[in-house]
Amino acid sequence: MSGSAPEGAGENVEYRVAHFRDRLAAEELGELGVRAEVRPGAVVVSGTVPSAECRETVLRTVREELAGLAVHTDVLVAETATPDHAEELP
């Protein structure tokens, strides 16, 4: 007798998050640095991406892949300022 399946694999949050990360890597972003974690009641998507365009692509992919889920996003654009000091290494 096979085990019961309370929800289809396609609706399982963990697998949806895994597929979301697969898409980020496979599509135009080639993005491996964005983390997506399942927390109680929400998915947290966080990381730093190279440009504002990349951030928009991540957020669009969130909307498409994780539709219907509560998602907290904390996706930053990499900073490009000149350093204001050096580290001394004696």
Partner: peptide, 21 residues
């Protein structure tokens, strides 16, 4: 030996500078 991770998301700048004496 001192090791520095200079991944841009870590250093949060265009580059870091290290003064080797």
């Amino acid at each position: 030996v001192r090791v520095r991770n200079v991944a841009q998301p870590v250093i949060r700048r265009a580059f870091n500078v290290y003064h080797l004496h």
